[in-house]
Structures are given as structure tokens and as C-alpha cells.
Amino acid sequence: MSQIYAIVKKEMWQYFFSPVAYIVLSSFILINSFVFYVVLAAMSKSASPPLSPMALLFGGTFFFWLVLIVMIPVITMRLGAEERKLGTIETLLTSPVSDFEIVIGKFAAAFLFYLFAWLLTFVYVLILKAYGEVDLGSVFSGYIGVTLIGAFFVSIGIFATIISRNQIVAAVISFSIMALMVGMTFFTFILGSGKKEFFQNIDLLAMMENFSKGIIDSRNVIYLISGTILFLALAVKSLEARRWQ
């Protein structure tokens, strides 16, 4: 446990001492603030349709997914690939730290950074509360959704960075996997009732829609947690293979 903590601490320092982290954070806030502002402006018009700003922020727009599938590869790409490029991975692998601890430590660091970015968006909830009533139950559920989807995507990023030698390649691999996962929704639109059932169960957009509206579905929670574990297990195994190379 102390090894995991040490890795998390080291990675977190690296994040917050790197200008890239601030570029990611400010871009993340700029896009989300802009979306939030547009929703507020639309709501203030007399003939506006029913809108829920937080529900739109949690997966209700294209920007949410764009931010996620660009931001997470940027956060995770250097975690493994850079260590290999700099040669520090050998030091890490020969130290008394297990592969599991390395993967979990790096995963936890990236995940905490991701959560920190989302924590900043709580300002929007406070603004909404100042102007009207907010159903905090659905806001809470939305944050649970963001947390679970984030964990899933960060695990994909960790797997990609561990199997790649180059940061850009790692980012492209994780971006592609995430884009594919999000793109599965397309099949639920084009297929008929019998065939689309499979895709409905892995439809991330529909999952996020549920969370944002205040519904927690055990199927969604289990899919996202098991998906996270699957990619982390594959990452541990990849690191183990690297050790024997």
C-alpha cells in the first residue's frame, strides 16, 4: 500500500509541476464553462424548451465526450510511455514494487487528477443554487456517472500507455478505443429492435444520460467497473510481459 501511495504522490507532483496539466485544466474549464453559459442563456429565453444545465453538462452534449476522449489520453499518455522513453521503467521494474502496485499507483494518480478537474465544475452547481432550485440528487448521480466513466477511460489510457513506446502512440491508441466505445451508440440508432439489444447494453451515451437524470442502473455501474478492472488487468499483464523481455 505504501508503494502505491509513493507512486501516486510522485505522479501527482509531476502533474501539478507540469504546465501541460494546467493547459488541460484550463481547456477543460473553458469548454465546460462555455457549455454551461450557453445553457443558462438558452434557459433565460422565454420560449426555451425544458433544460437541465447539469444534465447537459454530464454527457448531454458532444463537448462532454470530446473533452473526455481528448483529455484522458493526454493525462495518461506519459505515465508508461515516457518512463520507457527515458529508461526509468527499468529502475521501476527492478525496484521492490509489484506490477500490480505500479499499475494501480499510476491509475490512481491519473484518476485523481481527472476527479480534481471535475471537482472544479461544482462551481456551476453553486451558481445554479444561487439562482433557483437544483435537484442535488440528480447532480450527485451525475457526478457518480462522471466518476465511473472516468475510471473506465483512465484504465484504457493506462493500458494504452503501458503497451506503447511512444506517448503519441499511447494517446492515439487510447483515443481510438474510447472513440470506438462512444461510437457504439451509432448502432443503437440504425439497427432494429432485435439486433440493437447488445449495443444498448454498452451504450455509454445512454448510460451517462441515465446518471445525469438521477437514475443509477446496476447494469451501467457493473459494466463500467468491470471494464475498468478488465483494462487494468490487461495493463498489469502487459507490464509483467515487459519485465521478462
Partner: peptide
């Protein structure tokens, strides 16, 4: 999980 699932309403 798909065969045996539960949904929880978090709205107040």
C-alpha cells in the same frame, strides 16, 4: 448483471 438488475432513483 443484465439479467438481474436494479435501478435506483436518486432524484429528490
Amino acid at each position: 448483471s443484465i439479467r438481474h438488475f436494479k435501478t435506483f432513483d436518486m432524484t429528490f
